[in-house]
Every structure is written in C-alpha cells, then in structure tokens.
C-alpha cells in the first residue's frame, strides 16, 4: 500500500477534478498541506458549457496542467501515493475524460486509485481550511445547490434545487442579457448599481428550491417589460439569495448546528455572504466561507478527500472506476466523522 515504504508517515495524493468546465490537478499531503492546485477552465465562445467541447478541452490540457502541478509541488510522479479523481456527479463526457487520465496514472505508476464524490470534496476542503467541524453546508455552484448536514454516517441533504442550480440560473440569465459565460459574477457587479426591486416569483417548496421560473420571469422583465438590466440583476439576486438563505436558516434551526459553511463557485458572491452572515448571527452560529482559491472546482479538494477515503481503505480497482454523472451526496458513507 505504501509502495514498500511502510514507515512513511506522510503520504501524498494527486487529485484530478473534471466534472464540468474546469480541469484541475491538486497535490495534497496527508497533513493537509496543499502543495499545488492548478486549474484550466474551458470558456465557451458563445453560450454555455457544451459537455463534449469541455471534455475535449480537458483532454487537451491534461498533461500540461499535470506537469505544472508536479513542478509547482516540487515532486515527481514517484512521490505520489494515491491518485484520486472526481467520479461524479457532473457532465458525463468531462467525467469520463478525467477518469481516463486517473486510470492511466494509476496503472502506469502502480498507485492506488480513489473515486471521490465532487460534492463531498467541496465540504471536506471547507472543513480542512476553515476549521469548521460539523457545519450546515450551503453548497452553491453552476451544477449544484445543496443544503446539507452530517447525521448518521452521511451528509444528509436537507434542501436542494428541484430544477436548475443557482449558478446555472445566474449564468442562464447572464447569457440572455448578453453577458459572457459565466454570467454570475457579472450579474453581481451589475446588481450593485441596481436600485429598484422588480417583482419576481419567490419559490420555496418546503426545504427545496426552484429557480427556473425565477429566471424566466427575470428575462421577461428585462426583454419585454424593458426594466433596467441593473435593476433586474439586483432583484434576481435578492429573490434567489433570500430563497437560499431562508432554507439554510431553517436547516440550522432544525438541526441546531452551530456552524455554517458556504462553498462552491457562487460562494464568492459578496451579497450572499452578507446575508448568510446575518443569519449566522441571528442563529448564533459561526459563519465560514471557503477561501476563494478552493471554493470553485479544483483538484486540491479531490486530493484531500482522496486522502480521507484512502485512510479508510476506500481504494477502487480500475475496473470498478466507472463514473456516475448523478452520484448523490447522501449516497456516500463518511467514515471519518462521528455523531
């Protein structure tokens, strides 16, 4: 298991991320030191992410990103103890391309392979870097919108989107408004100059959320009712984030957890952070935001989660390393956390 070096105390994991538009290689030690975290992101010329084109991008840049990560970490392939990869959930073509790279490395250098759930990884890197121990996690990105908390061996899903994820909603609106992908950050900037609250649908269903109707309504306000772009961006954010924060607050109240962790690509949004900070104060919980460098998709979070899984013997043979585009967060057992 330790490549014959059984007294070795620190081991090193190389993590490959490739669930959507980002191909990333992270190198992390079992002590939690991030030695490298290189990414290359596919940017579509027009429109949103085309899965096949994103996958082609990943295969084109894979060896380059891999080499620059090894160089940055100042190690060679011989120093690696584990190869971890994002096994799901995500876009099929992207997942498969990344898995091919992982299997090749594992086979070529005879290093154990670990399949990591992308959503679990977002939570684990957040716990590692913020010091949160047992948080309610709000994970918001282009591909996911999940409110979760640990209970009985798993991260249970308390609330989630029943149609499109929040990041996707912001990007879709951005595209219709003529903003380049990803639209989310541009919507945030424009929203700062918005003043008028345009009426939009507020859709919370129990603990679950729905954003598709909200986006359609926002587009209509912009194109048919000729509302100012800044005002629609502002209103879209206010409605969407109020919905997210409401569900998150209820999860905190329900579970009585004392920590709140914000992660995912949309975690960088200042307005969302501000609203969550307010709720955390109200509910007497500590609020943590995952640092910018690891909030979006990246290899370091995959590598770190790979280390956790490896410690519990969760390696997989190549023939069982099929990807799963719809792999749920709550399908994964989390042996490293106790009640």
């Amino acid at each position: 298991m330790f490549q014959g070096d059984w007294i070795k105390l620190t081991f090193i994991c190389l993590g490959l991320e490739g669930t959507a538009h980002t191909f990333g290689v992270g190198i992390v030690t079992s002590e939690g030191d991030i030695l490298a975290n290189e990414i290359s992101t596919y940017v579509p010329e027009t429109g949103g992410i085309h899965p096949r084109e994103a996958a082609q991008h990943h295969s084109c840049v894979a060896s380059e990103v891999l080499q620059s990560a090894l160089l940055k970490a100042r190690i060679s392939s011989g120093d690696l103890d584990i190869i971890a990869f994002s096994q799901g959930p995500g876009l099929g073509p992207c997942l498969r391309t990344t898995a091919v790279v992982a299997r090749a490395l594992s086979t070529l250098f005879d290093i154990p392979l670990v399949g990591v759930n992308h959503c679990v990884a977002h939570i684990e890197i957040g716990r590692l870097l913020t010091g949160a121990k047992d948080p309610i996690t709000l994970y918001v990105s282009g591909g996911n919108t999940i409110v979760s908390a640990f209970a009985d061996k798993r991260y249970r899903v308390f609330g989630e989107t029943i149609d499109i994820p929040i990041g996707n909603a912001l990007d879709m609106f951005g595209r219709e408004a003529g903003l380049q992908h990803p639209g989310g950050p541009k919507v945030e900037v424009l929203a700062r100059s918005g003043r008028k609250l345009v009426e939009l649908p507020y859709i919370v269903k129990g603990m679950d959320l729905s954003f598709s109707g909200l986006v359609t309504a926002a587009i209509r306000k912009l194109k048919e009712e000729k509302e100012q772009l800044e005002d629609v961006c502002f209103s879209l954010q206010e409605y969407a984030f109020s919905m997210l924060v409401e569900v998150t607050e209820r999860a905190i109240a329900h579970t009585q957890k004392k920590e709140l962790l914000l992660t995912g690509g949309v975690a960088q949004n200042k307005r969302l952070q501000e609203m969550l900070q307010e709720v955390a104060n109200e509910q007497e919980a500590a609020f943590y935001t995952v640092p910018k460098e690891v909030a979006g998709d990246n290899g370091a979070k995959i590598a770190w989660t790979g280390i956790l899984l490896y410690k519990y013997g969760k390696t997989i043979p190549v023939e069982k390393s099929l990807v799963d585009p719809k792999w749920r967060l709550d399908a994964v057992e989390i042996p490293w956390l106790m009640e």
Binding site: R156, V157, K205, G206, M207, D208
Partner: peptide, 17 residues
C-alpha cells in the same frame, strides 16, 4: 407531487431509519 416528494425527503433526512 411536490408536496409528497417533500414529505418523503423530510422522512429521509430526519427519520432515515
């Protein structure tokens, strides 16, 4: 359907056993 779905989800997150 969403109402029933939510009830099912609530059972799964709180009364998982």
């Amino acid at each position: 359907s969403v109402d029933l779905h939510l009830l099912k989800r609530a059972l799964e997150s709180t009364h998982f056993k």
